[in-house]
Design a protein around this nucleic acid. Structure first.
Length: 364
DNA sequence: TCTGGGGTCCTAGGACCC
DNA sequence: TCTGGGGTCCTAGGACCC
């Protein structure tokens, strides 16, 4: 037998701390130390809209992602309120991801402020991985001025839970032999993939912690949650996850959604909005040189229920005209079938492909 | 003037083809 | 004469995430 047995996978997950708010602090040093609240204004006037994220000073006052802006103002009247500035966050994100890529064997960006790194071939054990993680954090801090929280573990699932474990500016390493004791006392919603609904159903079964899930039999979990989710829950609760770190290639869908000035089901108002949304979606597609094959109209009624209506074309298309006319037809058909007034509407295209006939430089 | 906007992944039923 | 079953695509909806 070979005496060198391969060591387990070593995966790093990085999560930027209160990212949007931290970016704003970097751009406007004078606001540092004050509560900072990043807002998505709905356009209905005044403080209509929701909080996207906030820094820790604001969180201490109870201002968290998702709450209405007017409530945030009541909780933190002296806070700095800023609208989301996505371009800024994207450009800072790019700087960070470049640094990260240089360190890892495989790289997977998960969102504007999160990523996975495979370190398996770069380090020989978890102690070395810890030093490397610390170095990565330092370099990001040096070059971009921002702090992040990092988790290192034998798989993506546990690495992600670990990066969330100590924040901000945290570094949590979970070795293979520590996985079970690390997970078992945590609450079930700390498990990525267990949200409100699944959490409530698990609570009804008397389950409070991740350890409690692992005590249920696989068969019972399948009975309650179906085959796929049941099996996943059992494995996840034991820290088992075989999913690979994979470079993502392109996106699956591109959409844009807005809140209407007022609730309505008036055809002309909705068609005007559809036209505008179609143009926005078209611009995003064009920028990425993508074609699409299906178009969806998304409607959110005043009770906040989401409904969709989709159409798939016979062949991929790339023209604004096709997005607009398909979306218009879907919107009209939707209104004919649904009596509710609408609060928000959106357009989405999917089945995206690189546009043909557009050679990239690499192909010459 | 309660409750934003961008995504991913999964499921289920029906159409259609072989 | 009776009527199977597998595969794939499409539509709609739901859960979840940042």
């Amino acid at each position: 037998m070979p005496d060198e047995k391969p060591h387990p996978r070593i995966i790093l997950h990085i999560d930027m701390d209160y990212f949007f708010a931290q970016c704003e602090e970097r751009e406007h040093p004078e606001i540092k130390g004050k509560p900072v609240v990043i807002c998505v204004y709905s356009g209905r006037g005044g403080d209509s809209g929701a909080v996207s994220t906030s820094n820790y000073e604001a969180r201490k006052l109870g201002v968290k992602a998702g709450i209405p802006i007017y409530r945030a103002k009541k909780l933190a009247p002296d806070a700095v309120f800023l609208p989301v500035n996505m371009e800024l966050y994207r450009s800072i994100s790019d700087e960070i991801m470049e640094i990260l890529k240089s360190y890892c064997e495989k790289f997977e960006q998960e969102s504007v402020d999160e990523a996975f790194c495979e370190l398996t071939g770069k380090v020989s054990d978890f102690d070395e991985a810890r030093s490397l993680a610390a170095r990565i954090k330092d370099e990001i801090k040096q070059k971009t001025g921002l702090t992040c929280s990092v988790g290192v573990a034998p798989n993506k699932l546990v690495a992600k839970v670990a990066s969330d474990f100590r924040k901000p500016d945290g570094l949590t390493v979970v070795k293979p032999e520590e996985v079970l004791q690390f997970l078992s006392p945590l609450k079930i919603t700390d498990l990525i993939g267990v949200g409100k609904k699944t959490g409530e159903r698990l609570n009804e079964l008397g389950v409070k912690t991740i350890g409690d899930i692992s005590k249920l039999s696989k068969d019972d979990l399948i009975k309650e949650f179906g085959q796929a989710k049941g099996v996943w829950l059992k494995q996840a609760s034991q820290g088992v996850d075989d999913s690979q770190v994979e470079e993502r290639e392109g996106t699956d869908q591109i959409g844009r959604i807005i809140t209407l000035k007022e609730n309505t089901r008036e055809l002309q108002v909705i068609l005007d909005a559809v036209d505008k949304l179609s143009e926005d979606v078209y611009r995003k597609l064009e920028a990425r040189k993508l074609s699409f094959k299906s178009v969806s109209f998304i409607a959110i009624s005043t009770d906040l229920k989401t409904r969709t209506k989709s159409h798939t074309l016979g062949a991929p298309a790339k023209d604004l005209d096709i997005i607009r006319s398909t979306a218009r037809e879907l919107a009209q058909a939707f209104l004919a079938e649904n009596p509710a007034a609408l609060r928000r509407i959106g357009i989405r295209v999917a089945n995206l492909k690189e546009e043909k006939g557009q050679k990239t430089l690499g192909e010459f």
